[in-house]
Simulated scan of single mutants.
Amino acid sequence: MDDAALLQAGAAALLTLAFSWLAGSWCARRWLAAGAVPAGLRHADMAAAVLALAATLAAMWTATAMMGGLPLAEAGSMLWTMLTSTAHGHAGCVLLLLLLLLLAVRWTGRGDAVVLALLLAFAAVRASMGHAGEGGYGTVPHVAETVHLLAIAVWTGVVLVSGWHVLAPGMVPQAAQGYLERMSLGATLAVVALGATGVYSAWQRLGGAAPLVHTAYGWTLLAKVALVAVALALGAWNKYFGLPAASPTAAGIGTVRRVLRIESVLLLGAVAAAALLTVQQPPAAM
């Protein structure tokens, strides 16, 4: 893998991570009781938006290098041309604008409805920039990819935000109960959507079962599925065993938090595998 492809995969992983945090934060704000939103969550959201901006710029830089057949160091002079004269560049500019607006809204500390609209628009535009968007907006592959990106973001995001920020050691068990129930339901719905759209997208890109074990793309996809499966098993344990035990005691909440953190590491691995898929040619397109 050359430098441009490596940077492209890294940028894709960081962008998914930042987008997931923003989606998870939005969900957490809706599920927490009034006045219970952690004070530092707004600053974490702003940091995620800045990270997403940097990752988008890096992705545009690598796209310029790949389109022009240039080394990364020489792609800067062509970046503006790519942004202003190609469909991929135009979509990248829209992503940057959406992220700047999101950063501005989170700076004010208000506007959750606006943030939701920006997140939905971001997912739709990003989905249009890959193989699923080749037929245009509103096609079945594009809609499936948009839902897939949102599902990944919600599941990964709520696990990250809950495990590393919301479920703080000093959280009152009674206050956590309602949040955990809503978090569990939201994550379950996201997993269902992720499974349905993931199977569809994999079939579209593989063109059959054989490439799963005969191509690098297939093995990368299998690694991603394996990580997701283990994360799903941990999520199921939390849903059926951890959450019922969490409501009466602070120790129970601590157990849920630790499982969520392990789950988050597995999901980050799945995000990394998905990023590697973006720099590989799908077997169905060969």
Rank of each mutant, 00 (worst) to 15 (best):
A275R: 11
L96S: 13
D112A: 14
L96E: 11
A117K: 06
I262E: 08
P169D: 11
R30D: 02
A113N: 12
L160K: 06
A123T: 11
W61E: 04
Y200E: 00
M286G: 14
T86F: 11
A187I: 07
A65R: 02
Q281I: 15
R261G: 07
A48R: 05
F122Y: 14
T81D: 06
Y179M: 12
L206K: 04
V125Q: 06
A275C: 15
W155L: 14
Y217N: 01
L267D: 08
A59V: 06
L189H: 03
W164T: 07
A9W: 02
H88K: 14
L97V: 15
A196R: 02
S128V: 06
S184V: 12
L268G: 12
G157K: 10
M66C: 01
R205T: 01
Q8H: 09
L98F: 13
V159N: 03
A209E: 05
R261T: 08
V271R: 09
L102E: 14
G68K: 06
L22S: 14
V50Y: 09
L120V: 15
A9Q: 03
P244T: 15
H131E: 01
V147H: 01
A59T: 06
T81F: 11
A18C: 15
A187C: 08
P244Q: 15
K239F: 12
A49N: 08
M183P: 02
L32M: 11
W155H: 10
K224F: 00
W155G: 07
A153P: 06
R110S: 14
G163N: 02
V225Q: 00
R258S: 13
L97N: 11
L149P: 01
M66L: 09
M129V: 09
W237M: 11
L212M: 04
H214A: 04
L83I: 14
Y240C: 14
G136A: 02
T139F: 00
L102Y: 12
A58N: 10
A33T: 10
T62R: 01
A187L: 09
L102D: 12
H148T: 05
A132H: 00
L41C: 04
A48I: 08
A113M: 12
G269Y: 10
H43Q: 07
A39L: 10
R258N: 11
L116W: 07
L180R: 04
G242F: 10
Q280A: 12
A193F: 01
V158P: 03
V143F: 00
R257P: 01
V154G: 04
A250L: 10
E181L: 15
A251K: 12
A39T: 12
V271F: 11
A34C: 04
G138F: 04
G109E: 15
V125G: 02
E263N: 07
A223Q: 01
L277F: 13
T146Y: 01
L180Q: 06
G76A: 08
V37E: 03
H165G: 06
L51A: 14
A246K: 04
A23V: 15
A44V: 08
V256F: 03
A4E: 02
A284T: 14
